[in-house]
Each structure stands twice: as structure tokens, then as C-alpha cells.
Write a protein that binds this DNA or RNA. Sequence first.
DNA 1: ATAGGGTTAG
Length: 492
Amino acid sequence: MALHFYKTMLCYGVLPNKFTYPFVLKACAGIGGLNLGKSVHGFVVKLGFEDDLHVQNTMIHMYCCCEGEVEFARKVFEGSPKSDSVTWSAMIGGYARSGRSAEAVGLFREMQVVGVCPDEITMVSVLSACTDLGALELGKWLESYVDRMKITKSLELCNALIDMFAKCGDVDKAMKLFRRMSMRTIVSWTSVIDGLAMHGRGLEAVSLFDEMIEEGVAPDDVAFIGVLSACSHSGLVDKGHYYFNSMEKNFGIVPKIEHYGCMVDLLSRAGLVKEALEFVRNMPIEPNQIIWRSIITACHARGELKLGETISKELIKSEPMHESNYVLLSNIYAKLLRWEKKTKVREMMDMKGMKKIPGSTMIELNNEMYEFVAGDKSHDQYKEIYEMVDEMGREIKRAGYVPTTSQVLLDIDEEDKEDALHRHSEKLAIAFALLNTNPGTPIRIVKNLRVCEDCHSATKFISKVYNREIVVRDRNRFHHFKNGLCSCRDFW
DNA sequence: ATAGGGTTAG
């Protein structure tokens, strides 16, 4: 609409002024078309408004909203003669939304060096980057910074803090903040329910959801995803059915593919593979690949290997360029000890020029994020780290650990497989943490994929042998390892 | 007169 008026304005020969452009650029941002944005940018330059701070700020925002065009935004940002908190927030938010969280945090640090004061919106943007990184220490520092600088704790800022604490591994702190809030929206409730769900505290999540309804806050579709995934991560099958059925009946919310996905996941994880398949058959909408993958994972876990193989093959046919489909099939062959078939899957991937997404683990130490990938030797300390990994291996074996070699992708002999397992990124990160932190300090790591069976088992032993609490955030949820046990109770 | 922000299945 705004753009329509702008075009009409130009047609009639009425000259826009510098106040016009923020509106126009904002409309472009909403559409996200790069060419449109560029042509408006051209007009801005022609008319000489490019040095106006407001125009620049909206221009940065506009480029950030065009898919994958943060670099254009960065150019405008670099070229701005003046900047204020809005300029920096727009750029930091742009990086955060495009998954370039480390750069977002870096820019926030730069902002302080330059001496521009962040406001509550800047803090929301940098907090969401921090959440993505899983950097709890940074998050805590940001919270204290907000207090120190007397930045207004707006509702959105509180929500961002809750989400940060929950996703950085401290749900109890998230819960405390939530309880202290005077005003809460559905977003506040959902953030803390999701947080509890991720930590496997399903019963608490469910009771909070009930409390929300009692308080008269109507759940929306996102809140239902939260409560259903809480049921799924904690094996609350009956409760899951109850909430799913209540969606339409009591709240008039038509379940979407995500909700069906949660239900399939709930049944699959609970080991009810047949029921999950039955549920898929009766769904009124087409199941997607996510749903099939969660069934295959269940087949793998429950030993329904033939069924898993059949579905995997179908999935590869319909989505041949998705590497995780091959990984699932190859894991099934590994469990069947069909190494030749497993190698074939690997060859299929190679032929299509695909690679397994490398597993990586991040860890925060002394205000710095360190990233490890399997077999990584780029770190200064790598010799010590590998020695520590070997020592860890010896110590936990003595405590009863038996390596789970079936998930190693390569067809190599048992000893080499064990070796490959020892070089998994999380083991490197844990060794690095054991070397560089004081005894008894909890270790927090963030994985980009799901934690593998062997690392899960090894980490349990490490937590006992080295007397450390180890908190692992993987792609789906948290694992709190303590004294040889994991909070997921091996259910994940 | 104009600009930047929070929750989403595996």
C-alpha cells in the first residue's frame, strides 16, 4: 500500500523528501525484494538523502530483511557518517536473524568501543544472538549490563532474557525471571514452557500450560507446539493426546503440520511405532519429511530396522538432496551390521556431491566461544587436548564404559572406530574444558546436531569419573549429566 | 513528521 502511494506520487511528479523514505524503505523491507530495495536506494542517492541518519537506518534494516543480503546492509552501515543506537540495533539484529550470531555479538562489542549507548532494543537483538550461541556467561553479563546501565526492562526485553536463560541451560533462572514479571504475554509463557520442555521437565511444562489457561491467557498455535513437545520429550503420551484433542475443541485452533509432527514424535519416542504409523495414515494432511524422519529414528531405536529401511529408501527417493535421510539409512545398516550396504549409502552421497554435515561443538570459556569439529587440530592446545581425550577414554573404560561403535560411518576395524569416536567434537570440547576450568566447575557445551549414542554414554561416565556436571545442548534438547546419569533418562 | 525488537515440531 505504502509503495503504491509512493509510485503514484512519483507519477504525479511530486518530489519525495527525506521523511518519505523511511516509510518507503520499511515497506520494501516487508516485501523483501532486493531489486526493489536497490532501486529505491538509487533514488535516495540521487535525491541526496543518503546521509540522513533515519534514512540510513531504515536502509540497513531493509537490506537485512532481504534474504541473504546482510552484506549490502553492512556496506550502508560502514558508509554511514553518523550512527546511533538504532543504526547498531538494525545491523546487530540483521546478523542475528541471518544466523550470524558471532558477528552480531562482535558488533555489539564494537558498539561499546565506539561509545554508542545500547538501548533495550539493542539488548533484545544481542540477546537473541547470545541465545543462539548458547553462551550463558555472556547472557549473564548482558543481564547485569542491563541493570548497570539502567536500561528499561521492557516486556520484550524480559522475554528475551527468559528465552536466553532457558536456551542457555539455566531454566530455573528463566523461571525466576518469569515469576517476577508483572506483565506477561503469551510469548513469555511459551518461552518458559518451551524451556522446560527442552530440559525434559515435561510435567512442570504441562502444569504451567494449565496455569496459563487458568489465568485466562488463551493459548495460540505456538504455545501448543510447546506443550506438545514437552509431552513428547517426557513420554507423556496421554497428556499429549489430551492437549492435541483440546486444540480445536476448546480453543478453535486447527492443528497444523507442526502439531501433527509433535504427535507423531510423541508416539515414536514412546516406542509406539505402529500407533505412529496409524496416526500418519489418518492425518487429514500430507505428512512431511520431518514426520517420516522421526518415525525412522524411532524404528532405529526400537529395532524395527526393516521398516526403517523401507521408509528411508522412500524418503531418499522423494528428497534425494537431503543428507540426513542418508545418515538415517546408514545408521540402520550399521545397526544391522550390513557394512557393505552402509558403504553403498556413503557412495551414493559422494556421487551426488553431498557431505554429512560435520558435527561441531561450541564451548564458552573466558568470554570467548571455541568451536570444535571432529578430528579438529586447529586449536593451539590440540596436543594437550588429544592427550586428555585419550586419558578420558582410559579412565571411563576403567569405570565400565563400553564404546558404541555402530554409529561410526566408516567401515573400518573396531579399534579405528573407537579412535574415530574419541575424536567426536563433544569429546574434544569436554577435554578442552577439563583442561581449562577448575575442578568441580560445571561444563556447558552446545552441539549443532543430536548427540550420538556413544557420546551420550561416554559423557555419563565422564561426569562421574571427573565429578563434573556437564550440560549439553544438542539440536533438540538439553542433557544434564551428573554423577553418571543424564536428565533425559536415556529417553531422547 | 521519518528508523531498529520477543516464542515455533525434528
